[in-house]
Design a protein around this nucleic acid. Structure first.
Lengths: 208, 208
DNA sequence: AGGTTAGTGACAGCCACTGACAATTGACAA
DNA sequence: TTGTCAATTGTCAGTGGCTGTCACTAACCT
């Protein structure tokens, strides 16, 4: 059982996160001040910065939860799976179980709306991409370990991850401007784009 | 012939850019204030912001010059070349002619040092990655046009560009931590990584 | 030469963020 | 319980990036 202090902290953090997401998705990121978020939870601005290193961290916190879960999922894939297959399955499974990860803080729908705010807000997109670089490094390590390779000697783990991440980014970007909001659409796009990599790398595009 | 006013403006901008790069590469980006840059050129802080939308823009301005040139180079590649080949040649040619693009502002060596500052400064890396997203969109358009395809109907242009950009990012990242500073090293890594994409995508990595 | 326009400096102000210190509140033992 | 310690929070003051405004000067144009 958790101590009262810890529960209180958790509640404050959740409240701040909820308020932030609420404001970001309605009013927009830039047009929301940290003071407003703090005021909505009735804490001081200083307290906000004790829970989040910056305004952007609050905006990315939800996605961060799912990203961490994704990396774990890759690590947990059966070792005999080829790298790209393991990555693919981990993402798709991630979208299937997104609700379980997020529902304790916000409903899935709000998560998706926040995702679109990130994608359409330059500073947030930038922060998101920067974080992705770190994730890629983690993934490369996982892949190298799965295949029993030395990350510094063999470029393939990093390359596979780079290609995969590039495709995922293209998918996110496409989805974020798609009129169809739903999870099914993301799943479909993910599969479609991953299947498209092979054909796209072929020299001759006339045969499709 | 340019007007005096325009020449003066150009000189002010160049001076600001030079001072900024000088300070960023020596003192570091975060530890350099806009006031210091402005003071080094003896203009007001306000004037700095009339030339650069933000401190980061001054830090990315050099790379921006080469990026624009790169996109043009892709556009100018012979139409019969497959997309990935055109992209590859354009990058490699870009590194060959980097000096011509940059020398009017700073020596190449300083350009390369600035590149490393970007790569190692979180906020700059973030801004750089965000800009790359826009570049990818431009490239996708160029590729689609070259191949006579509709960008909204066929995912292959975006995919090819996404894969290419992913690999380029991995290359940059690798180079930025390499003890070898030189241009040759970048060229070698670029070729190596591009050649590695095929093998990395294969299911079975045991055969190499 | 004289009116017009572009570029600049000075100033005031917003907002994100940080350090320091004091006040409060929960944890835990006597 | 109660007193002590430690964690959490609020307050305050300050820095740095960035913007709007306005008056002033220098370049342009006829």
């Amino acid at each position: 059982m958790e101590t009262l202090r810890e529960r209180k902290k958790q509640r404050t953090r959740d409240a701040l996160l909820r308020a932030a997401v609420e404001l970001f998705t309605s009013r927009g990121y830039e047009r929301t001040t940290v003071d407003e978020i703090a005021a909505a939870v009735d804490v001081s601005q200083r307290t906000f910065f004790r829970y989040f290193a910056g305004k952007d961290e609050a905006a990315l916190a939800l996605v961060e939860m799912t990203v961490e879960r994704f990396v774990e999922a890759v690590r947990a894939r059966p070792p005999h799976e080829p790298p790209m297959e393991a990555l693919r399955q981990a993402v798709l499974d991630g979208w299937d179980s997104i609700n379980e990860v997020v529902e304790s803080v916000v409903p899935v729908e709000r998560y998706l709306r926040m995702y679109r705010v990130i994608e359409s807000t330059p500073v947030l997109l930038a922060a998101h991409l920067r974080r992705s670089v770190e994730v890629e490094e983690d993934l490369a390590r996982v892949v190298a370990e799965r295949e029993g390779l030395d990350l510094d000697a063999d470029p393939r783990p990093r390359l596979a991850v780079a290609v995969f991440s590039g495709v995922m980014r293209a998918t996110e970007r496409q989805w974020s401007t798609d009129p169809d909001f739903g999870l099914d659409r993301i799943r479909a796009l993910t599969s479609l784009y991953l299947d498209g990599v092979g054909p796209a790398l072929l020299g001759d595009w006339r045969g499709a």
